Amino acid sequence: MKIFTMCMECQKELGHPSFEPILADYYDEPVAHFECGRGHICALMLQSQKFEILLESAVNALLAGYTLEASSTFSSAYERFFEFVISVFCSKQKVDKDELAKTFKQVSRQSERQLGAFLYLYLMEFGVNYQINMDIIEFRNKVIHKGYIPSPDEVEKFAEKIYTEIYQVTQKLKSSCGEDIQNVVQASLLERSKSVSGQVAKATSTGASFFSLSHEEQAPTFDSAIASYKEVQKAIKESTPTLKALGEIIKAREH
Rank of each mutant, 00 (worst) to 15 (best):
Y163F: 06
A235D: 07
T164Q: 11
S193C: 14
F74Q: 09
K92Y: 02
E179T: 02
S18D: 06
A58G: 06
S76Q: 07
L55Y: 02
E79Y: 00
S48R: 01
K146M: 13
P150A: 13
L213A: 02
L55A: 02
Q131S: 15
K12I: 10
E9P: 01
R140N: 00
S205V: 07
S57M: 14
S214I: 03
K234Y: 05
V107G: 08
Q186Y: 08
A43S: 00
H215V: 03
L189I: 01
A187H: 06
R140I: 00
K174E: 09
V185F: 01
L213Q: 02
I250K: 13
Y78M: 07
M1T: 09
C42H: 12
A225W: 00
F81A: 04
M124F: 15
L123S: 15
K194Q: 12
V59R: 13
F210W: 15
F51W: 04
S72D: 04
A43R: 00
S57Y: 10
L173C: 01
K142H: 08
Y78A: 05
D28F: 12
I144E: 04
A117L: 15
Q11E: 14
G39K: 12
Q110F: 08
S195F: 06
Q110S: 10
Q131C: 11
V128L: 10
T221F: 03
A101V: 11
I3R: 10
E216D: 02
T221Y: 02
L246Y: 02
D98W: 10
S18N: 05
K105E: 14
G178S: 00
L14G: 03
G37K: 14
M8A: 12
I22Q: 06
S87Y: 07
I250D: 07
F84H: 05
L119W: 12
E83A: 13
E254W: 03
L189H: 01
Y122N: 11
L44S: 07
E160P: 06
A117F: 15
D96H: 05
K174F: 09
E156V: 13
F34W: 05
Q182N: 12
I226A: 11
K172M: 04
H16N: 06
P150Y: 09
V31C: 04
K146G: 09
M8V: 14
A32F: 10
S228F: 08
L55V: 02
E83L: 14
K161G: 04
E112A: 15
M45L: 11
L23G: 10
E125F: 13
E29L: 14
V185N: 02
I226N: 12
K251R: 11
K157A: 11
A77R: 03
N129W: 13
Y122K: 12
S188A: 11
I22V: 11
G37D: 14
F104L: 15
G37N: 13
T170M: 01
S87Q: 12
L243H: 01
K244P: 00
E154V: 09
L62K: 10
C7M: 01
S48L: 01
L44R: 10
K94A: 07
F139I: 03
R109M: 08
K146C: 09
F139P: 04
L14S: 06
Q168K: 11
E179S: 04
F118I: 14
T204Y: 13
E125K: 15
K251N: 08
R192L: 13
K157H: 08
I22Y: 03
N141S: 13
K2N: 15
A203I: 08
K97Q: 12
K142S: 05
G247K: 00
V232T: 08
A101E: 14
S57V: 13
F210G: 10
